[in-house]
């Protein structure tokens, strides 16, 4: 959706107010609040998954190219960042992460070439090729994990400009900064002509072609930018969240998880990725508390895992039936009910 230019508004209706407020709270209030558990288990993964969602949304939500291989790009980002950091001595951490994103972008562009001829499900199936191939390659060729016996890579210490971000709060702030910058850029992008081209290609590719919108260039741009962001998210997943990863953690389930995030959150919205990620991160925790409260010992980890799948699947279907535009649209409707905000 575009934000048409309007004259200055009463403060509450300004579209900038919510994100700015969120940033103020995120930087100024949150770090002083909770214990390390909240950061390590909730906030940091929430931010990383949101970023991955933003990336995928650019490709799938705005440009309409369904990709089931997001986890593979996260893996590329994680392993590339690890290798850049390891093998180029003196390379700043942020540079490693950006180069990792660029690597993912390159692969994304190459694998985006088929999108000119393939649509819909055929494209989705071809993205599965990336998913399985990348997972296999990263496990099979020891070079990627510096020949570690189990294919596991360890994150380097998080030092930027001499400051160490190695605490729970530090990792959170590190992630928050990168996520904020990339999200802001994405937000800006979708309101420009490029964003319009994305939407045009999604909504009616033929008409866009007739108008002169460069179809291949637009699709490749979408693949490239999307993969870059998802690659950076993968690097953050490894460096700031889990600290040790293996390629098995970037499996098909993870790809589906990102797809679910953007569907539940709302396709073709930036805030949707955050809403969806919040739900995805928080609901298993709620479910496990609820489960063990209601069912006690029967509710072990196996049961939890299966229940999670059921709840997730049900949520997807419920959203698709009742609110296909996701939590973002739901939020809009709620806001309109409150006259102060609408």
């Amino acid at each position: 959706m575009t934000t048409p230019s309007r004259p200055s508004l009463p403060l509450l209706k300004n579209p900038w107010i919510a994100p700015l407020l969120a940033l103020v709270i995120a930087y100024g209030v949150v770090p002083f609040l909770s214990g390390s558990y909240v950061f390590d288990a909730i906030l940091t993964p929430f931010l990383v998954l949101s970023l991955a969602g933003v990336g995928l949304n650019l490709l799938t939500g705005y440009t309409g190219q369904l990709s089931l291989g997001s986890a593979a790009f996260m893996a590329v980002g994680a392993f590339a960042a690890f290798n850049f950091n390891l093998r180029i001595p003196g390379l700043p951490l942020v540079a490693s992460i950006l180069l990792a994103g660029a690597s993912a972008a390159l692969i994304g562009i190459v694998f985006g070439l088929p999108s000119l001829r393939l649509k819909g499900f055929y494209l989705a199936v071809s993205t599965l090729a990336i998913q399985f191939f990348v997972q296999w390659a990263l496990t099979k060729f020891g070079w990627f994990s510096n020949n570690s016996p189990s294919g596991v890579i360890d994150a380097p210490p998080l030092h930027v400009l001499g400051i160490s971000f190695d605490s729970a709060v530090g990792r959170y702030l590190f992630t928050l900064t990168i996520v904020t910058i990339l999200t802001a850029l994405s937000w800006r992008l979708v309101t420009t002509r490029t964003g319009h081209h994305f939407i045009a290609v999604r909504d009616h590719e033929l008409a866009a072609k007739v108008l002169g919108v460069p179809i291949l260039r637009t699709k490749l741009l979408a693949f490239g930018l999307s993969s870059f962001i998802i690659g950076v998210a993968g690097a953050l997943w490894a460096f700031a969240y889990l600290r040790t990863v293996e390629s098995a953690g970037f499996n098909l389930d993870r790809s589906f998880q990102i797809v679910f995030i953007i569907i539940i959150g709302g396709l073709a919205t930036i805030r949707g990725s955050f809403l969806g990620a919040a739900l995805i991160v928080v609901f298993p925790l709620i479910l496990s508390r609820l489960g063990s409260f209601l069912l006690g010992n029967i509710f072990n980890s196996g049961v939890l895992e299966m229940s999670q799948r059921i709840v997730l699947g049900t949520l997807i279907i419920l959203f698709l039936i009742a609110e296909p535009n996701g939590l973002a649209a739901l939020l809009e409707r709620l806001k309109r009910r409150i006259p102060l905000l609408s």
Partner: peptide, 10 residues
């Protein structure tokens, strides 16, 4: 063949 995701102006 209008682009439903864009406003009339866009």
């Amino acid at each position: 063949a209008l682009f439903k995701g864009l406003s009339v102006f866009d």
